[in-house]
Design a protein around this nucleic acid. Structure first.
Lengths: 194, 194
DNA sequence: TGTCTATCTGAACGTATGTTCAATTCAACC
DNA sequence: GGTTGAATTGAACATACGTTCAGATAGACA
């Protein structure tokens, strides 16, 4: 019978994931060793393989989980394209500021994914971009937005919004709500008709 | 006497730099070995140390050279803030699309810099940001721009413009000039007074 | 109390790492 | 044609890597 009280599997598993998240974000996937992760968890390297088949899967699961949560967490709200775009922008900033390490990894470590894993992650990312582009297309169709190219505007907006994670720190000059408002203002103006 | 004809130092040196640039961009600094760089150059690993004191300096020199060239290549043109902002935006896109590998490295490999090297690179980067912020401040002062926070607008604009390197490919649906124009249009609108 | 088994250790595997350096090569000069 | 010295080789150094696995450990059940 499996141990209940005193069983460590339910504790060690998440610990491994958390340690990998923190170390991959800080030092990079290639520069993080399994022994270093194990030390962080308080266990020998061999024990990690009870919780992940290999190092690559550890990275892949972090990325996939992140993007799946991102997709599950935001659906276009009822309302016109302008309200939908505002919802997207504000949610994007909140979601990303809440998970700076995952955001960092999901972008920086793409090249360390094996081909079939990369394909999966890339598809999830494109799905997210399509959500925004659909909002922009709808807005252009009804004349609320004026953008020469919705695909390009999609990339520009996401790059701009995601960039907030590179400099924002809690306790700084501006709080999250203020930052969110200022970014939304720039996005709104950038795609505005007229 | 040093060999002139037949001397390889003037050839091998740049080759080392180019191979490092290409491999760091493709596989990452941590995942690139000195032996791999040497193989690309067509030389044994030991020979690399005639051209660089160590691997870290190879990375640092690439980054510093890139940022120093960026700073040397653009000075605010004569004219009002709007013309200066347009100059900045168009130059930023051109410069970055011309050097996708250096751009990639200069952002991705920051964490692999030793502390004193990081300090130098960070100062150069901040100098570049200040150039843009000064333009924005001047525009706000004369009422040409309306941005609630020039520092934040600086970061947003740079993130948006630099993002073009992540998706743009020559021979795609839009050429460089078209992309440059569309991005400039969004930047202009995003900070416009009105 | 004794058995079971999930959990973990610790050593080992082959391979790779950045860097150093004595020895070698070979084109250019006297 | 012999000498010079810059350019390069190739082996060696200590250390680290991801992964495997036989064996030890210890909490839960009978």
């Amino acid at each position: 019978m499996a141990r209940k009280t005193g069983s460590h599997a339910d504790i060690t598993g998440p610990k491994v994931r958390d340690a990998a998240l923190r170390l991959f974000a800080r030092d990079g996937f290639a520069a993080t060793s399994m022994r270093r992760i194990a030390a962080e968890v308080g266990v020998q390297a061999g024990a990690l393989y009870l919780y992940t088949p290999d190092k690559q899967t550890l990275l892949f699961d972090l990325m996939r989980g992140h993007l799946e949560e991102l997709l599950a967490d935001w659906q276009p709200p009822a309302g016109g394209p302008l309200a939908q775009l505002e919802g997207f922008a504000r949610h994007h900033i909140q979601f990303h500021l809440d998970r700076p390490e995952l955001v960092f990894i999901a972008y920086m470590e793409l090249r360390n994914l094996e081909p079939q894993n990369f394909t999966v992650i890339e598809a999830l990312r494109r799905e997210y971009e399509t959500r925004l582009e659909d909002v922009l297309k709808a807005g252009v169709a009804v004349g609320v937005f004026a953008v020469p190219d919705t695909k390009l505007a999609t990339m520009a907006i996401i790059a701009m919004l995601t960039g907030v994670t590179t400099w924002f720190r809690d306790g700084g000059r501006l709080d999250r709500t203020a930052v969110e408002g200022i970014y939304w203002d720039m996005v709104r103006k950038a795609v505005a008709a007229r």
